[in-house]
Design a protein around this nucleic acid. Structure first.
Length: 423
RNA sequence: GUGGCUGUAGCUCAAUCGGUUAGAGCGCUGGACUGUGGCUCCAGAGGUUGCGGGUUCAAUUCCCGUCAGCCACCCCA
């Protein structure tokens, strides 16, 4: 045993890479259907990209170090700052709205457990330059459609959506929560969503001790589910209602439920926020996102509203496994060539070369083996058929094409076989 | 970063109260099977019992440390 991969990092064996590739393929396909273009940036970034701007939370768990040139650098923990920089640099030139997606590998130094490693791949989809709720609806629809593309329905996954503008307006209006107190109170609400008992402790940290508002705010939080309808009639609810109407038009409403307890951890969200999660709720959120209208302004000094989401491959992969979603075999041979005797090896190698030139995927045994062994290998490789070539066949200018599923076989003229025609 | 649980072939698991050459199934390799895979049978390879230390005549077993995994915190890509 020569050790293993670093904790939280994965070796991808062929079966596992097949799953990863299947996920990537589906991501790209849905992104394409929504008219998104793929981009990428460097995995290693200046440390300041993360320390200066958004959430302080992220910084504590950065993979950060000094390079040989004395620069402070970090492996990217999220894609959004890179996106903000890239868009900011060409903001004038890019036609709005910008629809971009990326599948970056992201890194965080934290204790690993199931569904959260130190490295993962995350689909990022963002619409930049459109402030209206139609963009939010488009992004949310894409997230849901990815789930559908994996064969997951409304019984399997749920999309919970909220709007920070509604919740903060209530908190400010009813309880005089100040701008300074708001992030802490929202953190309390975020906490409430997962573990109501701890929300109290958070509020006591951000608000003055014995503040009478604490009890009232906790009351407010616990009533959010029942009070949802009322909040949706408030003035600030118009974008959210419009977004949901759009989703309804797209026939996706059955996936969606309004839940004002959704906050999302990141500080930079400014409007609609949402999470896609396992209906059985045994795993964490599959995907989360929302509107962040001020971030590009902060990073690049250009006012550009954005909405987007991230979806990681780890939780999604576990979810697919739980739902028994099969992934196609790692190799996709078209045929396995079998040489009956030693004098058949050269013709087999020549045939293999011809077929490969035509784009046909073939393999053959690399050392002399009985036919039995060669067929065994062919089956193990998942080849759909074996082409058997022996002295008799060469004399008759045919090959035996054996279907490895059914065991049926027939003779096919070599002139056809050479062209990749096996029947 | 904090706490709890767990660590035996590639995988799933055995091994009496601490007892001497640590086993089985699956998988892998070879053979029975010299022009036809899946079945069956036989054989083989593969272990510093995560690692290090301690107690003991004797440790997979008990103790300590460490590393790793899982779980809960922290935090949430």
């Amino acid at each position: 045993m020569q050790g293993q991969a670093l904790p939280g990092f994965r070796d991808f064996y062929p079966e596992e890479l097949a799953l990863r590739n299947a996920i990537f393929t589906t991501w790209r396909d849905v992104a394409r259907r929504y008219g998104f273009q793929e981009y990428d940036g460097p995995p290693l970034e200046p440390l300041e990209l993360y320390t200066g701007k958004s959430g302080e939370e992220i910084v504590q768990q950065l993979y950060a170090f000094e390079d040989k040139g004395g620069r402070k650098v970090a492996l990217r923990p999220e894609m959004t700052p890179t996106l903000a920089r890239m868009v900011g640099a060409r903001a004038q030139a890019l036609k709005k709205p910008i629809r971009w997606f990326s599948i970056p590998q992201l890194f965080r130094y934290e204790r690993q457990q199931r569904g959260r490693l130190r490295e993962h791949f995350q689909l990022n989809m963002d619409i930049i330059g459109e402030p209206g709720p139609a963009a939010d609806a488009e992004i949310i629809a894409a997230a849901i459609d990815i789930a559908r593309a994996f064969g997951l329905g409304p019984k399997d996954v749920r999309l919970r959506v909220s709007d920070r503008r509604i919740v903060t307006a209530q908190l400010a209006g009813r309880y005089q929560v100040t701008d300074g107190e708001m992030p802490g109170v929202l953190a309390g609400l975020d906490k409430w969503d997962r573990n109501p008992a701890d929300a109290d402790a958070i509020l006591r940290k951000v608000l003055p001790a014995n503040d009478p508002r604490i009890g009232a705010i906790l009351e407010f939080m616990s009533g959010l589910r029942e009070g949802a309808a009322e909040l949706r009639r408030s003035e600030q609810a118009e974008p959210l209602n419009e977004c949901i109407a759009r989703l309804d038009e797209m026939k996706l409403a059955e996936f969606v439920e309004v839940d004002f307890r959704i906050v999302r951890g990141l500080a930079y969200y400014t409007g609609i926020v949402f999470e896609l999660f396992d209906a059985k709720s045994s795993l964490r959120a599959i995907c989360g996102g929302g509107r962040y209208d001020d971030l590009i302004e902060q990073v690049a000094g250009i006012d550009l509203p954005c909405v987007g989401f991230g979806m990681g491959d780890v939780v999604l992969g576990e979810l697919l496994k739980e739902h028994g979603k099969q992934v196609k075999a790692p190799t996709e041979l078209d045929a396995f060539l079998v040489a009956v005797g030693g004098e058949d090896v050269a013709p087999v190698v020549q045939l293999a070369a011809e077929l490969r030139t035509r784009g046909v995927s073939v393999e053959y045994a690399l050392h002399g083996q009985p036919i039995r062994k060669q067929l065994e290998l062919a089956a193990a490789r998942g080849a759909p058929r074996a082409l058997i070539l022996g002295p008799d066949e060469r004399k008759a200018k045919v090959a035996i094409v054996r279907d490895l599923k059914t065991g049926r076989q027939k003779k096919v003229p070599l002139t056809k076989v050479r062209k990749g025609i096996f029947k």
